[in-house]
Design a protein around this nucleic acid. Structure first.
Lengths: 235, 235
DNA sequence: TTTAAATAGTGTCTTATCGCCACTTATGCG
DNA sequence: CGCATAAGTGGCGATAAGACACTATTTAAA
């Protein structure tokens, strides 16, 4: 603990190297994908890792702002949903020494950031199920798995995954997304029933135009962000 | 990002002041209590705050180990249950500058650490419902509230609160504990039924001796730590 | 020794919501 | 026009929680 009062000097303390990283999910081609960045510098130069980095003390007012700023730099937009996942810290996860990373996970509609990402070569959407921990920097493989598990839970008791869809979407699209996240199929009726009963969506009045019966287009109500069903789907 | 390769020097980076704190809960006299420590040094000298402090890079192998070490120093024992809550960080939460705290929440049986805590004056169990944010250091009031909300959720879909009881306990004691945490009463039959069906407890064969019908004494199975009911109690 | 009070634990009906799956509805396209 | 396709509904059975009265087992007082 600090024995000396002012002047305070942070370099008197043996603080760890602290960074902020994010697991940004989206869905494309019916596959769950995560945003990875190819590292240009040591450690792990050349390997792929989560978007993130050091806090800019003059710019970032808090941890979430820092995570959003990093994601904006890589995708061109702020994610529609972001939530803290966990922090990982230890003596051996970074060859430079004791390090801590505060990890967020976030959701974004693929169409909203496609152009920005297509224009660079060191940022890529990668399919979650095809990742191997070996090609990733630090413990980012493990972190992505933890984020996926958290998102799977969310898909069973909330409609948070809706924030990985465009602003307007159909029930079927939302259900397909939940199914991609959890890796199994869901009952159409059960899925619709609970969302309708909780009144979490706004009917935009519009419909899709395609082969087959047109589907109504919905938007998420603000309450949808925090709503939690008392009962999980599946079991 | 690091531009220079070796030799790496952490002081080249503008890292925040990073600490680890814990919200340690217990139950005593049918009230939910949290462990607070009176601060001896600036900032917030004299105010009460969460047990925690700086990482000891030579001693602590990871964040959880660090949190457990701090709690051991204050209570004399390692908590029976510990889990990461969240990290708080920002430019203005600590007058010394940009700071981050990684917060854990933990459970302990009151009887197991009573003697150690009674012997010192700067560590106290404080009733959660009687705390005001003003008497607490940093943003610790808000953190305690978040930890309480998380524990309330746990009480509705798990038996994690059991780790705030002595090794052996009765159904009624466990239910009373859940009720104290969530602040309402629960249905006796529903509470017992689900725990029995999931087979989360071990019957020790022993019983209490007191006024009224003796109650069977149980222990938590290891599975109880991670088990999650598909449906929440109440609603 | 009986009886009341206290606490533990059960029986069982009602209610809510999910799984299941067949059915109807609405559109495009050949 | 009718078939293929996809959206959306009806309705039954199963599971688990809520409600609450009931039984069971002990201590302590009368």
């Amino acid at each position: 603990m600090a024995k000396s009062p002012a002047p305070y000097n942070i370099h008197d303390y043996d603080v760890p190297l602290t960074t902020v990283d994010s697991v940004l999910f989206t869905v494309h081609d019916e596959k769950l994908k995560v945003l990875l960045v190819q590292r240009g510098n040591a450690p792990f130069a050349g390997k792929w890792g989560l978007p993130g980095g050091f806090i800019e003390q003059g710019t970032d007012t808090d941890l979430e702002m820092c995570a959003i700023r990093k994601l904006k730099e890589k995708t061109g937009i702020a994610p529609l949903y972001i939530e803290q996942l966990l922090s990982q810290g230890g003596a051996s996860r970074d060859p430079r020494g004791w390090s801590v990373t505060i990890v967020f996970y976030a959701l974004v509609a693929h169409v909203n950031c496609e152009p920005h990402i297509d224009s660079v070569t060191d940022v890529q959407w990668r399919e979650v199920s095809a990742l191997s921990a070996k090609e990733l920097a630090f413990d980012h493989g493990q972190i992505i798995q933890l984020a996926h598990e958290r998102l799977q839970q969310k898909a069973l008791y909330s409609i948070v995954p809706a924030y990985a869809l465009p602003n307007e979407f159909t029930f079927t699209e939302l259900q397909a997304l939940h199914e991609v996240i959890i890796g199994t199929t869901l009952e159409k009726k059960s899925f619709r029933r609970r969302i309708e009963k909780a009144e979490l969506l706004i009917d935009t009045g519009k419909s899709t135009v395609a082969r087959g019966r047109p589907a109504k287009l919905y938007k998420v109500k603000p309450e949808g962000r925090a709503y939690r069903f008392v009962r999980n789907l599946e079991s």
